[in-house]
Design a protein around this nucleic acid. Structure first.
Lengths: 188, 188
DNA sequence: GGCAACGGAGAACGATCGTTCTCCGATGTG
DNA sequence: CACATCGGAGAACGATCGTTCTCCGTTGCC
């Protein structure tokens, strides 16, 4: 098996297992077995579990933000509608069968600051998501798009948290309604 | 040593160690050693690590909500000021040296749904916090206090998340400013 | 004093897991 | 064919950890 294919299969297996069962609960051998890759290959590609987890997070970051952006783009050109579409997508995500919260918040909870590699991957993802929301807010007619984006970011992160824990089944709808209030207040 | 004293010492040690280093990273023996309690006593009081962790979370829930409520009470009688005081307290908390995010969100990330006992403790805490915010919102002159409280809850949870991960050093201030917008929009 | 129950200290056990090593067959080259 | 290289399969190793067990001194009761 070639390196590239082994890497792909490992990342697919890692995403499925680590996300649904947690990072600590999934052994290197579980990922290896599901990917159908030998130990040798795995350690050749990722010299430690930490590296494999960081690679999984980076791959998930790209896919996740891609899905958000696709849904936002499908919502059209109106900047307000585009910002609100983020919450519609969150609602669809929360309703998925295998939804288990934000993989990055969960990873942070599991690893905390113990692994610089993983912490960096988590920060990178959250920064990129926030940057994306700032971009969306800059298209909105307001005098302080950064302030608006900060509020939208907090609502989105809060919705992910309460949806994961299961406290509020309508977290996405509540976040969207609140975001609507923010947009109305910010509109120039 | 009496049972009650052993239990107290265990919970104090558990809170310090589990919160600062994470649940999986701290062994039963670490807690036992810091508390100065024998293995026998520990397993007599808490028949498994799961039970000890759940007890730690319940104890922390009481202390944490007590601290929030004390700060809110110190803010006076005005319902708007009291709601905003929640975010002031979050800011103080985020700035503490040993701040490592919300213990309950972290615990959820570590354990996920694998432990019914721990999941229940996490949900209980988040429900009680939300109930508290609903109470504060009911004192505010608005036609839909539940909707207001939902928005405030999402902002608070989001602030905890981004403050923990370290994406936004001013998370509490941003959340407070956003909450202010919500209050103005909701005021009857 | 004799004895039974208790509990402290910490070793022992068993399981899990990250990482490395060994064995061996396949493959390509002279 | 002879040989060297590679990589797959999976055993082995070493560490960690939750839980239980053993040993032994103390205490309270008759």
């Amino acid at each position: 098996m070639e390196l590239a294919e082994a890497s792909d299969r490992l990342l697919v297996a890692a995403e499925r297992l680590y996300y649904t069962r947690g990072i600590a609960a999934v052994g290197i051998d579980d990922v290896r077995a599901e990917a159908g890759v030998s130990m040798r290959r795995l350690y050749q590609l990722y010299p430690s579990k930490e590296h494999l987890v960081a690679a999984y997070l980076d791959a998930r970051d790209v896919r996740w933000r891609g899905r958000v952006a696709a849904h936002v783009d499908a919502a059209g050109d109106d900047p307000g509608e585009r910002l609100l579409a983020v919450f519609d997508w969150l609602g669809l995500w929360f309703a998925e069968d295998d939804f288990r919260g934000c993989a990055f918040i969960n990873a942070f909870g599991e690893i905390g600051g113990d692994s610089p590699l993983i912490l960096a991957a988590v920060r990178r993802h959250k920064d990129l998501f926030r940057d994306y929301l700032v971009d969306l807010a800059r298209a909105f007619p307001t005098d302080a798009p950064e302030v608006l984006a900060a509020g939208i970011t907090l609502l989105a992160e809060g919705a992910m948290t309460v949806a994961a824990i299961g406290t509020d089944p309508d977290a996405a709808a509540h976040a969207k309604a609140t975001a609507h209030v923010l947009l109305d207040a910010a509109r120039r």
